[in-house]
Simulated assay, not measured.
Amino acid sequence: MKIILTFWLTLIGLHVSAIPLKVAFVYVSPAGDAGWSYSHELARQYVETRFGDKIETNIVESVPEGRQARDVITRLAQNNDMVFTTSWGYMIPTARIAEQYPNVKFEHATGMRRGDNLSTYATRAYEARYLSGIIAASMSQSGRLGYVTAHPIAEVIRGLNAFTLGAQSINPNIKVEVQWTNAWYAPTKSEALTHGLIDKGADVIAHHVDTPTPIKVAQARGVYAIGYHTDMSAFGPDSHLVSVVHDWGQIYASRIQSVMDNTWSAKDLWPGLKQNTSHLASINPKLPQDIIEKINAATQAIKQGELAIFAGPISNYRSRIRVREGDVLTDTELLRMNWYVEGIEGDLRFF
C-alpha cells in the first residue's frame, strides 16, 4: 500500500512540475523591430529560450495607457501566473489589479507603486545617456543638439538632463532643444519635430520615443543621430553615432526563476551600466580615438562609483543652483526629477 501511495504521489509531483509557468507581457506599442517595446520583446524571447517548456509566454501589443490597459491587464491576470506591464502609464491600473489578484505576481516597469504581489523594475539608462551626450557634443559642429521625446515624466527628464550634462562635459556652451510628441509611439509627429529641430540648426538628434523615425530623418537630412531603447544603427547607416540600449533579459530571468523557486518577493530593481542593463551599442567607427577613450574612461568611472552624473554644482535652466557643490542627488531625488539643467531650451514641460 505504501509503495502504491508513493508511486501516485511521485506521479502527481511530476505532473505539477510539468505545468509551465504562464507569463504575460503588455506592450504600449507594436513589438516591431526597434524601440522600447522591442527591447522587452527581445527579453521575452530570451527567457523563452532560457526556460524552454518550463514557461509559457504571451504578449498583448499596442495597449494604450488608460482604461483599455486596465481591461487587458485584468484579462491577463485571470489566465496567467505572472504579468509584466512595461510602460509608466500602466502603474495605477497594475497596482489596483494586483490587489484584486493576490495570487498573481506583477512586475511593473519604471513605476513607483509596490505591494505584496507587485514589484517594480527599471534600468539606470541615464548613465548611458550621459555617455551618448559626450559623443553627440564631440561630433556637433553647430553646438546645437535636438531632442525628440514623448512625455515629461521623471524618467524622461532625468535622461534628457544626463544627456545634456554629458554634452556639456565636452562643450560647456552647447545647447539642447527639446520638443514633445505627447505619445510614446508617434512616427509622423516624430518626423515633423525632427525636421523642425534640424531646420533650427541641430546637427545631432537624440530621442526618447518608441520609433526609429528620428534616425531615419537624420539619415535623410545628412546629420547625426543617437538611437535609443534598442540598436538603431540599421536605420541610419551614415547618421547613427551610437545607441543607448536596454537589456531586460537578466531581470526577467531572475524574477521568473524566483517564482519557480517560490522565493519571489516584492522588490524595486534599478540596475545600470555596472550590471549591463543599459549600455552603448554600435558605436560609429567615425568617432575619433580620443573620444572613444573618453567614453571608455567615463564608463569605468561610472561603474566603479567614481563619477556621479548628478554631482554639484548643477544649475537649472534659469541659471539657479539646484545641486550645490559637494552634493550628489539621491535616488529619491532622481526618481522625482522635475527640472531641467542649464543649457536645455525649447518647450519645457513639467509633471
Rank of each mutant, 00 (worst) to 15 (best):
D231Y: 05
A220V: 10
D261R: 09
Y185G: 13
V323E: 00
A150F: 13
G222K: 08
K294F: 07
V176I: 12
G35A: 00
I314P: 05
K2L: 10
L329G: 01
A206T: 09
Q45V: 07
H207I: 07
G305S: 04
R349L: 12
Y252H: 03
R129C: 10
V204M: 10
A186D: 14
L280Q: 01
E325M: 07
A34K: 02
S258W: 05
G249L: 06
S17T: 06
K274N: 13
T164M: 02
Y130V: 07
R320A: 06
G32P: 00
A308L: 12
W180I: 09
S233F: 07
I344L: 15
I157P: 00
Y101H: 10
T149H: 11
R75T: 08
H240S: 15
I4E: 10
D231Q: 04
V223Y: 01
Y340I: 06
V217C: 02
N171S: 09
D238Y: 12
H246Q: 13
W88G: 03
V23P: 01
G52P: 03
F7T: 05
R221D: 12
V245Q: 08
L287T: 14
R144T: 12
L21W: 05
A162E: 04
A253C: 04
V323D: 00
G222P: 01
H246N: 14
A220G: 15
P172N: 06
N173Y: 10
A162Q: 03
L165W: 08
L269C: 10
V83H: 02
L5T: 05
S17D: 08
D203C: 12
R114P: 00
D261L: 14
D210V: 10
G35E: 00
H240P: 12
H40L: 12
L11Q: 02
A301K: 02
Q219S: 03
N296G: 04
A308G: 09
Q304T: 01
T213L: 06
T85F: 01
I153M: 01
N173F: 13
F25P: 01
E191C: 05
E155Y: 06
I295D: 00
L197D: 02
G52R: 12
M337Q: 06
V104L: 14
N262T: 12
D247M: 10
